[in-house]
Design a binder for these strands. Sequence first.
RNA 1: GGCGGCGUACCCAAGUGGUUAAGGGAGAGGUCUGCAAAACCUCGAUGCAGCGGUUCGAAUCCGCUCGCCGCCUCCA
Length: 470
Amino acid sequence: MSLQIHNTLSGKKEPFVPVKEGEVRMYVCGVTVYDSSHIGHARFLLTFDVVYRYLKFLGYQVTFVRNFTDVDDKIIQRANAQGLASEVIAERYIREFAEDSAGLGLASPTHEPRATAHIPEIIALIRRLEEKGLAYRVEGDVFFSVDRFPGYGKLSKKRIEELEAGARVEVDERKKKPMDFALWKAGKQGEPSWESPWGRGRPGWHIECSAMSTKYLGQPFDIHGGGGDLVFPHHENEIAQSEGAFDLPLARYWMHNGFLRKDREKMSKSLGNIDPVREVLRRHEAAALRHYFLASHYRSPLDFSDQALEEAGKGMERVYETMDRLDRSVPANGELAPEPRLLEGFRREMDDDFNTPRALALIFDEIRSLNRMLDEDKREGLGSRVLALKVIGETLGLLQESPGAFLQRKKERWIRGRGISPDVVEELINKRERARSAKQWQEADRIRAELQEKGITLEDTPGGTLWKVR
RNA sequence: GGCGGCGUACCCAAGUGGUUAAGGGAGAGGUCUGCAAAACCUCGAUGCAGCGGUUCGAAUCCGCUCGCCGCCUCCA
C-alpha cells in the first residue's frame, strides 16, 4: 500500500503519484500579514508541516512553497488606521510570523515568496489571460471572466448559476457577471501601487498564488493545500486563472484542513473568539499543541480549549519522561539501525491520508512497552526501538528537543509563574533527605506535604530525589 | 435555498462491512515504595444520536427523524 491522499477535487482518497518520480512539489497558501497569527492558523501550519515532513521521510525530494500575502485591503486599512505605510505593517507581521513559526517548531519551507516581490510575474499572467480573452478591463481594473472558463466550480462543486442566485454581497455593477473577480485593482490615493499596462494599481488576492506557484513549481505541480475556507473562492479562482492561462491542470492533489473551533463555532476574527499563537505558547508547550492537533485527523473540525491542551501536555510529558529515562539507561550506539517493524507500522498509518491519531497511538503503545522493558530490566533490541521512536517523533515534529531540555523548561516556566525560588525547594529537599536518613518519617512527610501544597511533587529515585511541578 | 461535514466511554478522539470498537486525559483496584511519586498490570462503551431497512454479518451501506457545524462574503 502506498500513500493515499484525500483530494478535494474528487472528494475521495486517491493513491499519490507524483508528477516527477521521487520529487514532490507542494504549495500551501500562507497568511495575510495584517495581524498576529492565531491558533487557527497554527492548525493549517502544523497540518502541512507534517505533510512536508512525512513526504521527506518517505524519501521524496520535496519543494515546499508557502507564501505571504503582503498587499491587501486589510493591510492597507490597518496601515491607514495607524498612519503607517502598508509595507511597515506587512514587515512587522512577517517578522512576528517567523517568531511564531519557530515557536511552533515548523520546518522551514523551501521558499516563502511575497506577493509584492512578484509584480512582474503577476502582470505577465494577467496579460496572458487578457490575450486569451479570459479577462477584461473596466477603467483601471481587470476582471476574470468566469463564463470563459468552463471548469469554474469544479473544486468547490458549485455551479455559477446557483452562486449568482445566492449572492449576498452587493455586486460591482461594472462586472459582466457577479462571480467575476478582480485580477488587478486600480490604484487609489494612499495605497501601494505599481506601474502596469492598465495604469498604476495592485494585484487582486487570488492572482499572486497562481503567479508564484507556477514560478516556483511549474504546472502542474503535486499538492496544493490550505484551510478549508479557501476552497471557495480562493482556490477555485486560482484554478480558473492558472488553468485558463496555460491549459494545464494547476495541481493534482488539493488538500484542505478542517477548522479549529471554539465553543463549537469556527474561530475567526469577526467572531472575536481567537487566541494568538504567541499567547497560547506562553501557556502551553509547543509539543502539547502539536500533540493536541495530531490527536485528531487534519480534516475534522476540532474544538480548542485550554483544558484539552493541558491534557495533551500530560501525554507529551509522559513521552518525554520515558525518553529521558531511556537516555539515562540506554547507551548511545551509532551502529544501530531503527527498528523496522515500528517504522513500517508508522508508514501504514500515515499512508492512510496522514492518519496522525493512529501514528500517535503507535507511539504511546511503544512508550508503554519500552517502560515495561526498563521496569523488567530487559535490554534486547531496546536501542533500535528508541531510535525508531525518535525517527517517528521527528517526522511528526514531536521530540524536537532533548527530554532534559523539555522537562527543565516546563519546570522553569511553572516556577516563574508562581514566584517560587528553586533554591528554597532544593533546601527543603535536603532537609527532608536528612530527616529520611535519620528515619524521621514524620518530618520527611511533613516537608513533602509542604511542597505538595505548593504544587511540587517529589520523586525518590535511586539517583536521588527529583522534583517536578504540577 | 445549493453544496459539504459531524454526532463513538466521564472528557478528547481513531476506526467507515467481518477475529477482543485504537490512543490520550480523568477515575477505580493492584505491583513497587518507609510513605509517596513515576512506571507497569488490571478494570472500564454487550455498544457507536434515534428509528427502520439491506446483508450470513453494520458504528461502518441505504432511508427517515432529531441535534450540531461549515462553505456559498474577507477568512487557515
